[in-house]
Nucleic acid binder design. Structure first.
Lengths: 216, 216
DNA sequence: GCATTACAGTGACTCATGTCACAGAGAAGG
DNA sequence: CCTTCTCTGTGACATGAGTCACTGTAATGC
């Protein structure tokens, strides 16, 4: 357990009121997670709200057979709505959060979070806003799965990735396939096509994105 | 505009505090919608929160080409979280709510709803609970699309339908196909298979559900 | 009662994805 | 330098789902 730098939190979460920050500082814990490490799993341990201070998390679904798909990324300054959401986790699949980069997260015990809802207007707004944003993102994901072919989903996926991590996409085809719940060979082929349109350039273990609008 | 029967609302929304009900009664409007009528469309008109008093609504997504798929059903006593959620509706697709049966909805202007969040603890809880529940249901839908084949999705769909409307499913194959974003012929075949397992019996314009667990 | 319409069933075909089986090319480690 | 592993590329094939064309059959309307 470390000292939380108030200024940093304030910078990342500018909408939270001062008094709340003080409580946050005194009552929550900071945790550093390494790239690849699992941050949470729905319904595991004591539920706490997770605030992301630095780094990058991905939130994804995993079913009983090990299939997974990406729900969305979480960037610093945002909260993992799940921890508040998932009262009853659904039958067979779980929601997982994993660090994509080394990250720092703040863990807020649920009772506290619950209490703050009534006590601090800014916390309340923050939570509501989080719900909204996640809901929207989830809808987008849903859309892309329901209506689009894998080719478009791949472009959508790359766009999101570029947005959070820049144009050097350091992923193997296998990893991408996993997150789209597809298979490597198929992704390889689609990526090849994208390369032919000039949208991207393929390298070993990373992809250079030029202009994804060419890939449609 | 009619008089809202307080007792009825109280019965359907037992968790809302008394004082809130009074404000609700005096400041919101009751609207009756007929089966098949559109209740809302994301981003249309003034946004208001919708409380369902009686009947049944379905909430679904529709993309620019007229494809649609069902998100979830709303039963009396629940709120349409969307109206609060969808600040920025996403590019090309819209969320729609349509009455499956004749229904009565209460329209709460957004400013009011917003204000109540701070003023009434019970409203606040109600809203949070709604968010949670919708989120969960959306996740379930997402799951079924992402991981399951159309056969399982059909079973999942029928189950939901039975839950809200009973074992006499009065739908044509075409309607089902639409809500699953599939095509009639395919649904016909799958239904046929289900009939062969004894899970259902097919009739013209309606399906009799016996035991969907046979259909897996 | 006859014509029309909506719904349901079926076979043939296409297309997108997924799977299997390999092969080559870099990386990594000794 | 040689071995081994991981990542990538590709062809052949299987499967699920969508589409087309057509038939039959119950409901509806005049």
């Amino acid at each position: 357990m470390e000292v939380l730098p108030k200024e940093l939190i304030q910078k990342k979460f500018p909408d939270l009121e001062d008094q709340l920050l003080d409580e946050l500082l005194s009552q929550s814990t900071l945790r550093e997670v390494e790239e690849g490490e699992e941050v949470m799993r729905s319904g595991q341990y004591i539920k706490s709200t997770i605030l992301l201070l630095s780094g990058l998390l991905k939130v994804y679904r995993e079913d009983d057979e090990g299939n997974e798909f990406l729900m969305y990324y979480l960037e610093p300054g945002s909260a993992c709505a799940l921890s508040m959401m998932c009262t009853a986790r659904t039958e067979k699949s779980e929601i997982m959060a994993k660090a994509v980069k080394d990250s720092e997260v703040i863990l807020v015990p649920s009772e506290l979070s619950e209490m703050w809802l009534g006590k601090f207007k800014s916390w309340h707004n923050f939570v509501i806003a989080s719900y909204r944003q996640r809901f929207e993102e989830l809808l987008q994901t849903l859309d892309s799965i329901a209506f689009k072919g894998l080719d478009e989903r791949l472009v959508f996926y790359l766009k999101r990735h570029v947005k959070v991590s820049g144009k050097q996409v350091k992923l193997s085809h296998q990893q991408i396939a996993d997150e789209l719940n597809s298979s490597r060979e198929v992704i390889s082929r689609l990526l090849k096509k994208l390369e032919q349109t000039g949208a991207i350039t393929l390298h070993r273990n990373y992809i250079e994105v030029h202009d994804l609008s060419l890939g449609v």
